[in-house]
Amino acid sequence: MSPILLAEQVLNGLQSGVMLFLMAAGLTLIFGVMGLINLAHGALYMVGAFAAATVAGLTGSFLLALVAALAAAAAAGALVETLVIRRLYARDHLDQVLATFALILIFSEGTRWVFGSFPLYLDVPDALSGTVTLPGGIAYPLYRLALIVIGIAVALGLWWLNSRTRLGIRIRAGENDREMIAALGVDISKLYTLVFALGAGLAGLAGALVGAIQSVQVGMGEPVLILAFVVIVIGGIGSIRGALIGALLVGLTDTLGGVLLPELFRLFIDPASAATAGSAFASMAIYVLMAAVLVWRPTGLFGGRA
C-alpha cells in the first residue's frame, strides 16, 4: 500500500475520531457531573442533523444550518432535561437506561412522523467543497480537513471552558461534591440543565457536520452513540481528556483496520476471501481494542472511579 493512501486513511481516522469526540465529550460530561447514563444522546445528534438539513434547505446557508443544529439540539436537550432527565438523577442506572431508551423511541418515531422515512441530504457548502493538496502530495477533501480543524477547536474550547472559566469551576465542583456547591449558593438545577444543554448542543453540532458527508435519517444517532460508549469505556468515564484520546484511538483503529486487515489477510488466503474476512474482522477491531483496554485497565485509560 502506498504511503499516500495510508496518510489519507490516517486523516480519515482523525476526522471520524474528532467527530466521535464531540459526542463522547457531552456524554462523559453529563455522566461526570450528574451521574447519568444518557442513551438519548444519539437522538440529540439526529435532531441536530435534521435541524441543519431543514434550515439549509430553506435558506441555503450552511453556517445558519450549523447554528440551527446547535440551537435545536441544545433546546431539545434543555427541554428533555427539565421534563424528564431531572427526575432520574437520584434513580439507579437501570431506570436511567429505560427512561432514556423510551426517549429514543419517542424522538425517533416522532422524527419519522414529521419528516418521513426517506433520508434527507445536506450538501457540503461550496466554499468547503473540492480538495486541497497537502504537503507530500496528498489530495484531501477540504470539508473533511475542516471537520478535523473544527473538532480540535471544540476540544480546545472545552478545555478552556473547563479550566479557565467560572462555569468550568462550577462544573468541576459539581463533579466532586454537589451538596457543597449547592450550599455555597450555586443553583445546582440550573447548572445541570446548562451542562445537559451543552452536551446536547455538541451532539447536535456533530450530527450536522457528519450529516453533510452521510445521509440524514432516523436512527443515525444510535450507532454513533454506541461508538461513543466504546470511546468512554476506553478513555475512562468523566474524563474529557480520556474522551479525546479514546475518540482518536477508536477513529484510527476503525479506519485503519478497514484498510489494513484485508491487506494482512491477503498474505495468507486468496484475495476474494481475504477482502470479506478482512472487512468482517475489521468491523470488530474497535471492540477488540476495548476488550484489551478492559483487561489492562478496567476503569479506562484516564478513569479513576467506576
Binding site: 442506572h93 437506561v97 454506541i226 466504546v230 468512554i232 469505556v233 471492540y287 476495548m290 478492559l294 479506562g300
Partner: peptide
C-alpha cells in the same frame, strides 16, 4: 471486570 454504568456500555458494545 467492571460494574455499574461501565457494564451497561460494554454489554451494549
Amino acid at each position: 471486570r467492571t460494574s455499574g454504568v461501565y457494564f451497561i456500555m460494554i454489554t451494549l458494545a
